[in-house]
Simulated assay, not measured.
Amino acid sequence: MPWKHWNSDRIGVALAVLAAFGFSFKAIFVKLAYAAAPVDAVTLLSLRMVFSLPAFLWIGFTAGNAAPLTRRDWSTLVVLGVLGYYASSMLDFLGLQYISAGLERLILFTYPTLTVLIGVLFMGQSLEKRQVGALLLSYAGIGLAFAHDLQLGGDVATLLTGAAFVFGSALTYAIYSAGAEPAIRRLGSARFAALAMLVSTTATQLHFFATQPLSALVQPLPIYLYGAAMALFSTVLPILWQSAAIRRIGAARSVLIGTLGPVLTIFFSWWLLQEPVSAAQLAGAGLVLAGVLLVSRSKRKPA
């Protein structure tokens, strides 16, 4: 392998690891913010989006693809922006009020299998045996992780409420993932992400002003710091790192490296949040990751 290509490959792997690290830390920031002050999910998400907005506006204005937007483009952006960045994030933030960060990340990481199911149910795709196996592995892992939280004395109704919110987050993100590919091909990944973030920020602020008083934005300093950290280290930078990694090592390898995310979240929730870790939770994480790896494998084409 030529030195230049090998060096680019190493950089790509490092960027993919950094992206997985950043995305996995989002739940940690949310949990830390909830512990620091009685902030609600709507306000916390509003701060995250506002702090992220300048970076994505800059990305959108400097993106090279300047094709004019059609009415259909705007309709697609509105639907996907609301689903992918607003609804999914809101449901995730709500779920983290009820369940551990480790369980949240495992449930959220089922979105690749949900994307497969969406393709089967609504896009005429067939369900392969390996995909059935991936579904069984992933949801068996969720069951083990759920049992782990239940053994710690968690209330069943509370855990089910939190799990339902986070599963809704995974489902809306899966719908977003299934619909985003053609829009990204037309607009480019940077421009699409920037415009979708603009739509999401608008939806978030409308939600905030419709349900919260303006005084809710007055928060203790730690809440602002966690909101800014979440925007920078768990939103803007991971998206840029992931895009750069995909350019160097391809989407398939980037997705595989991204499976580090749940493991990292479990580790940091144990280290920073003092959430206990059990063999059942680790086994559940292993099953979920095995399911994601299985469903992410490309079907081998005949020679």
Results as ranks from 00 to 15, higher is better:
A251D: 09
A193R: 11
A27R: 08
L127M: 03
L135Q: 03
L32K: 04
G141K: 03
A183F: 03
L294R: 05
A203G: 03
S24F: 01
A231Q: 02
M1L: 05
A231S: 10
L282Q: 10
Y34C: 07
S296G: 13
T211I: 02
V255K: 09
G250S: 03
I239V: 15
Q205D: 11
R297C: 05
F21N: 07
G143H: 10
P182W: 15
G284A: 13
L240P: 09
A228Q: 02
F146H: 13
L273P: 04
L57W: 07
L83F: 12
L150F: 13
A41S: 14
S138Q: 03
I11Y: 08
V42N: 09
V39Y: 12
Q219R: 13
A20V: 05
S189L: 13
Y224E: 03
L225M: 15
P302V: 08
F56N: 09
E275W: 06
L187N: 08
L217R: 07
G154H: 13
A283H: 03
G60S: 10
T235W: 04
R130K: 15
K129T: 10
W241S: 15
S177R: 07
A14E: 07
P213S: 05
Y173P: 02
A140N: 06
P2N: 12
L69C: 02
A196E: 09
L69E: 07
E128I: 04
R186P: 14
A140G: 13
N7S: 08
S200E: 14
P238V: 12
G284H: 00
M230G: 10
A193I: 13
L273H: 15
I175Q: 14
T202S: 07
R48E: 11
N7Y: 09
W74C: 01
N7K: 14
P38N: 11
A196P: 07
L287H: 01
A147P: 03
R10Y: 14
V292E: 02
A87D: 01
L260I: 01
F61G: 10
A163P: 04
Q151Y: 09
V292K: 00
L214F: 11
T62Q: 11
L117A: 10
G95E: 14
V295D: 04
L187G: 03
A174T: 06
L135E: 05
A140F: 15
T62L: 13
Q131E: 15
F146I: 02
T70K: 13
I239E: 08
M230A: 11
W270V: 05
H148P: 00
V78Y: 07
A134F: 00
G153R: 00
Y139R: 03
I142M: 02
L15I: 02
R130V: 11
W270L: 07
P238M: 06
L264S: 03
D92M: 10
A174F: 01
S254V: 14
K301I: 12
I223S: 01
S269F: 08
F167R: 08
T158F: 04
H5D: 14
K299T: 14
S215D: 05
A145Q: 01
A183N: 08
G133R: 08
V292I: 12
G291R: 00
R248C: 02
